[in-house]
Amino acid sequence: MTALFIRYRNLHENFSADTDFNSPQKFHSKAVPRIGGLAIFLSLLFAGVIRLLSDTYSATLLLFLLGCSFPAFCFGLMEDLTKNISPRMRLLACFGSAILASYFLGAILHSIDLPWVDPLLQYPVISLAVTCIMIAGLTNSYNIIDGFNGLACMVGIISLAAIAYVAFRSNDSTLLFVAVATIGAILGFFIWNYPRGLIFLGDGGAYLLGFSIGVLSVLLVVRNSAVSPWFAALINIYPIFETIFSIWRKKFIKKMSPGVPDGVHLHMLIYGRIARWVDPGNENALISDNARTSPFLWMFSSLAVFPATIWWQNTFALQALTLAFCIFYIYIYRSIVLFKKPRWLK
């Protein structure tokens, strides 16, 4: 699907290509189609239909997941095509998808292993609100980290691999299938997106990834009591904390609206002060500065995800690791901002 979109780009690039080269979050220099998310959505739809022939239950879960994702994906895709959908409308669509997932898939958390919070989650309205905030927040956070070739999709693959592994350990073959199918669909996009950036995820693709991972994370905890809720938190902590930190930084440090894009996210700092330092001024490099940035963040995300797959049942260890990752994030960010980046990071 992705190859076809690229091969016949002349038929759709007038409305699908990203021609904005001046925004602070843009790091490409030529028009590139940003409808990669549509290829992922269609391939997952195809996978669900094929799965109906062998396992109706898992196929139904995948198809319902796609149906619930439709508001977020659709509004994101409309933004990709029209560049005229406000952030508020897209955020509301993400909440709409989260509500649908809670109702149709049962993706509602009733415990997060915090003694002062869990009693409140016994009230359906509160548990629904908390779960929707979590899912919608993760959905939007993948759009925030989607700034460089291969970044958001590989971070998503790493998290989905952790979900698949724990689903396997928990004998949950249904979630294992959905996670692996999603990894396969993303890989079909990834090989065309990295390293050359022949096509982008777009807002629709980023929302689809974030929403799917968020819902699967919640379902893994809901369906398997042995899985700690903090496993879901730790495997997604990089995009989640990137979003929280960005909101705090914009609102309280820069005194600006959190919805206004800027150029000082962590991945942008790594691009400007580390990736470009490796091989400066080499126009003939096989790997561009854009593509060279992503592996730093893949490894950074893995620092949280890999330990989570080891201690997926140990709530205390997962809580400690989540806190440690947040502190490490702030340390790395502050070091780069102050031009004191650690030598090992280079």
Rank of each mutant, 00 (worst) to 15 (best):
R169P: 00
Y238P: 07
Q122F: 11
H12W: 11
F296T: 08
A17G: 10
L63Q: 06
P33T: 06
W116F: 15
S301Y: 01
L318I: 10
F296K: 12
N143K: 13
A179S: 14
L62T: 03
F316I: 14
S58C: 11
A129D: 05
I99K: 04
C68N: 02
L4M: 13
L38I: 15
L286Q: 13
R34E: 12
I85A: 10
K250A: 02
A47H: 01
S246F: 06
Y142V: 09
D279T: 14
I270N: 04
T131R: 04
G210D: 13
L201N: 07
L321A: 14
R223S: 01
G210Q: 10
T131W: 09
H110A: 15
L297R: 04
G96I: 01
F231H: 01
G214R: 00
R51E: 14
F95M: 07
L91T: 13
A206H: 05
I183Q: 00
Y194D: 10
L219W: 02
D118A: 13
N10H: 10
D279Y: 10
N149H: 04
A291L: 03
K251V: 08
Y271M: 03
V278P: 03
W116G: 13
L109V: 05
V32E: 08
M78P: 04
A275S: 11
D262F: 05
F316E: 04
Y103K: 14
I183N: 00
L269C: 08
K346F: 14
G184I: 14
S217L: 02
G188R: 06
S294N: 06
N10S: 15
G67I: 08
V218G: 03
C326K: 11
R196G: 14
I287F: 06
D80C: 11
F73H: 01
Q319F: 04
W312L: 06
N149A: 07
G36Y: 03
L63E: 03
L209C: 10
P33L: 06
Y331N: 03
V278M: 13
I330K: 07
T182G: 03
F168M: 15
A320Q: 04
L53T: 09
F75L: 15
L62Q: 06
H28S: 11
T60E: 08
A317N: 09
L92P: 01
S29P: 00
F64L: 15
L63A: 04
F300T: 12
P195M: 01
D118Q: 05
G184Q: 03
M154W: 07
N10W: 14
G188L: 06
M89H: 14
N224A: 05
C326V: 10
A167V: 03
T82S: 15
N224Y: 00
